[in-house]
Design a protein around this nucleic acid. Structure first.
Lengths: 238, 238
DNA sequence: GAGTGGTCTAGACCACTGT
DNA sequence: CAGTGGTCTAGACCACTCG
């Protein structure tokens, strides 16, 4: 592990442990330089990491202020996967793999996923039970060249575990879109929906690797009254 | 303007102009060092900015790859304000200020906004017409100490213009939450809703200044079939 | 004015990608 | 292998905040 990651982790832990509390200042950069015996750039990179992850707000001439983190408002942003979410929430949950098949991208699937026509993909449909109710329906299309070797039971666990830890793929970013759609026959078939609802929340994502190849298209459909999306948004300059 | 901002802006413009196209590589860091006659750190800071703003994906040993930016999928993320959004979209739009009043935070408002009880706030209710229909209902509570001096006509224009350009407030970040709520009487009173809908999209935000003071609470209510939220999410390490 | 973070330099070594 | 970006150092000057 790098020096700046070590320092960032150390400070993060101290914030979680309450050594530095909400609205308080972290030690100054120079103080951290002498404390950790590193250069100022390294300290600054550690602080930058903490800022990006929503732990602190830095202010010129003042210092690094600890941000109040709502422990219930975990951020879904940052491509956190379903399993990680469950871990945060601590809910009882269960995943059932409904479909698990190889498919060739045809013209209509190409339009939806933006994969080129003719390439093989792994098509996975899963439904998720949280606290006894089937609430989420996930449909994934993964580039077969990378997802090959994934088993059905691993799909019920966590796809990203396999991709990152076994295949060492670097997932870099995703373009996400949240809309409210009408309920369709698939939703009715696989989810336990509240009667009277016409709508469902749809989260569509195009996921890219660090070499910029599109490798996954996902649509996640959530029952409206169980859906919540939270994020910490930073103000863009210019 | 700083050197790294100049360089970032220059490269951004060249990407927009098609000098560097999607999936192509930007010049290497060393090339940019000689081209702009600056140190490598400065070049790297410029590239970091481009990466954060979703223009490029950097990859170790390879270079900086230009990301395909969907011109239709503008990001709402990053605290973009309503007026800026309209500018991007190019839609005809109109804002009507329904309520504009000073209020003192009581216990129930304190719970909602997280402002301390007893402080004065500016309460603004606005409805927004886009392409001839009232679609969005915005309710704002702003710390009166900062919003004092804001006029009703400025509220119809852009609150952030006033706050940032006239009051020089540094808006730093916002904690946002998106949920689907039941339609209430206010929605019915001020919006033109599709018949049969029971739900509405609610986007609640707590907005903070760079010195970490909470200064705004906003709830924005959107007709379900007109709502779309898009963002570029980067994978968190660890 | 003393202390803070923001920008910038010139250099070094390492880890990773391509061919 | 040559070339790329990632980490790290030791220094300098500047802009900002606060008492």
């Amino acid at each position: 592990m790098n020096k700046y990651e070590m320092i960032a982790q150390d400070l993060e832990k101290m914030i979680m442990d309450g050594v530095y509390q909400e609205d308080e200042l972290l030690p100054s950069e120079n103080e951290l330089v002498t404390r950790y015996k590193v250069s100022r750039s390294t300290v600054r990179q550690a602080l930058k990491t903490l800022e990006e992850n929503g732990w602190i707000q830095r202010k010129h001439g003042l210092g690094s202020i600890v941000i109040a983190r709502d422990r219930l408002n975990f951020p879904i942003t940052g491509l956190t996967s379903y399993k990680e979410l469950q871990h945060y929430l601590g809910f009882d949950s269960l995943t059932e793999v409904v479909t698990f098949e190889k498919r060739i991208v045809d013209s209509s699937l190409a339009e939806l996923t933006h994969f080129p026509q003719g390439v093989p993909v792994l098509h996975i449909l899963r439904r998720r039970k949280i606290d006894g109710e089937f609430i989420v329906l996930d449909r994934d299309y993964l580039l077969y060249a990378y997802a090959e070797g994934l088993s059905k039971s691993q799909a019920a666990d966590s796809i990203y575990d396999y991709l990152e830890n076994e295949r060492h793929l670097e997932i870099a970013y995703a373009q996400k879109e949240i809309t409210i759609d009408f309920i369709n026959e698939h939703d009715r078939q696989w989810l336990e929906l509240a009667t009277g609802d016409r709508h469902i929340v749809s989260v569509k994502s195009h996921v890219f690797l660090s070499d910029n190849t599109l490798f996954q298209y996902t649509e996640s459909r959530h029952q409206v009254d169980k859906f919540s999306f939270t994020e910490l948004a930073r103000r863009q300059k210019r």
